[in-house]
Simulated scan of single mutants.
Amino acid sequence: MKTKNLLAATALTVLLAGCSSDDKATPKQETTKEAKTTVEEQVVTDQIGREVTLPKEIDSVVVGGILPYYSTWYVATNSTKEIVGMHPNSYNAAENSILAKISPDILRADTSFVKNGEVNIEELMKINPQVYIEHANDEATIDKVTEAGIPVVGIQAIDAAAAEPLATFNSWLELTSQMTGTVERANRFLAEGKKVQAQLDEKLKPLAEKDKPRAMVLFMHDDKTITVTGRNFFGNQWLNATGAVDVAEKDIQGKKEVNLEQIYAWNPDIIYITNFTQTQPQDLLEGKVEGQDWSQIKAVQDGKVYKIPLGIYRWSPPNGDAPLMLKWMAQQNHPQLFDYKMEDEITTYYKDFYEYDLAADDVQDILHPSSAAAK
C-alpha cells in the first residue's frame, strides 16, 4: 500500500506483541496471484504482499498480536461490534480506555483464543472469525491460522523508514478502509494529522539543535529491568516530530534493556513513560523503586517525568488520537511555543472526530492513565 507524505506514529513482545523494529519476515505460505472471487468476496493485498480473499461485508474480526489494531478499526468504521476477539493485552488497554465508554461493544470481544501467549486454534474456531489480523512478523501464527481455513491479514508494526510517527497508523487506516469500504473518517484523520504536523513544523523550524530538550522513552520498567526505545521505533519518531532529541537514538535500535548507569550517561532532560509499564512518574520522582536511584538524572531533578496519555488506545504506538499525541508531546518539549490548553484540545477533538462529549473526569483519565492499563 502506498502512503506518501502522510503525517508523521508504538511493541513488543508486550507492546504490539508486535511493534518490533524488524518487520521483514514473510510467512512461508504463498498466495495465488490471480485470486478468484465471487460477488460476495473481495481481494486485498496485506502489508506483507499477500493477496487475501475476504468477504465483501465483514462483521467478525479477531485481532491477535498486533495489539493496537482494534482502535484502527474503530477509527475507520466508527464501530467495534465487528471485533469479536482480541488479544488479552489489547482487551486490558480497551477496558481501561475511554473507548469502553464511547463504543462499549469492544468489551464483548473474546480473549480465550490466546492460551499461554499463543493462539489456540480450537478456541479461535469457536469465535468463527471472517478475518484474523496478525503482526506481520508472527509467521508461525499466520501459518497456523491460515491452515485452519481462516483468512489472515498481516500488518506491519512500524514503518521504520518513515520519519513521521503517523505513517504506520495511516497505512493501517488505508488498508482497513479497503477492507471495509469506509473512507470518510479515514480521510478526515489523515487530513487532521497532516494539518497538526504542519502547525508544529512551522513553530519548531527556527529552533537550533541546542534548543531542543534531550528526551528518553521508558518503554518497560520495574525494580528489575529498564527497557528504553531508540531509532526505528515510535518513541523516536514522536520525539523527532515534536522538537526533541532522542538520547538513545545513537545507541539503540528498536527497544533494549539497559542499566541505570547508561541512563546516568545519557542524563535526559525529559523522561516519557509508556502505558506498557505500570510505572508512574511519582515512582521515579519520589524514589519509590527499590534498588534504583533516579534522583541523579536531570529529568527527575527538574520534575519533567511524564506518563504518556491513553485515549481510545495508548498514545505511544499508532492510534486514533495521534494528532493529540503530537500536540501533547510538543507542549511538554516546548511549553513556551505551544501554550494551548490540552484539556480543551482533547475535548474538541473527541467532539469533532468521535462525536463524543467528554466529561471533565474523562479528560483527566486520558491525560493521567492508571497503572491498571498496563497489567
Rank of each mutant, 00 (worst) to 15 (best):
A322H: 01
D283P: 11
D211V: 01
N240A: 08
Y91H: 02
D105F: 08
S60Y: 08
I346H: 06
V183D: 07
I270A: 00
A198D: 13
K256V: 10
G235E: 09
Q199M: 08
K36V: 15
E51S: 13
V183Q: 12
F234S: 13
S103K: 04
D110C: 08
C19D: 06
M342K: 00
D143L: 15
E286S: 06
S103L: 05
H334Y: 00
A322Y: 07
G193M: 05
A186W: 07
A372K: 06
V258G: 10
N236E: 12
L16K: 14
T45E: 14
T347E: 13
S371F: 11
Q331F: 00
D143V: 15
A148P: 09
M220W: 11
E202V: 00
V217I: 04
A265Q: 15
M179C: 10
S171W: 14
Q197A: 09
L190V: 12
Y91I: 06
D283E: 04
T277G: 07
E174I: 15
D59G: 14
A374W: 05
K341I: 12
G85W: 14
A372P: 03
D344S: 14
V152H: 03
R231Y: 02
S71A: 12
E261V: 00
A191G: 02
A248I: 00
V119H: 04
I271H: 01
N137I: 12
E134A: 11
A161P: 06
T146W: 13
K304E: 02
N137R: 13
A8D: 06
V14P: 05
N96E: 15
G303H: 02
A100R: 08
K4V: 11
D321T: 02
K255Y: 13
F169G: 05
T274M: 00
V84S: 12
A94Y: 09
T13P: 04
N120P: 06
C19T: 03
T77Q: 07
D352Y: 01
N96R: 13
E51M: 14
G149N: 04
I127A: 08
I48C: 07
L337A: 00
A8H: 07
Y70C: 14
E118F: 13
E41T: 14
W172T: 08
E192A: 14
K256Q: 15
N78C: 09
A161Q: 14
K203P: 01
L358W: 04
P268V: 00
A244P: 00
K341T: 12
T229M: 02
R50A: 14
V258Y: 03
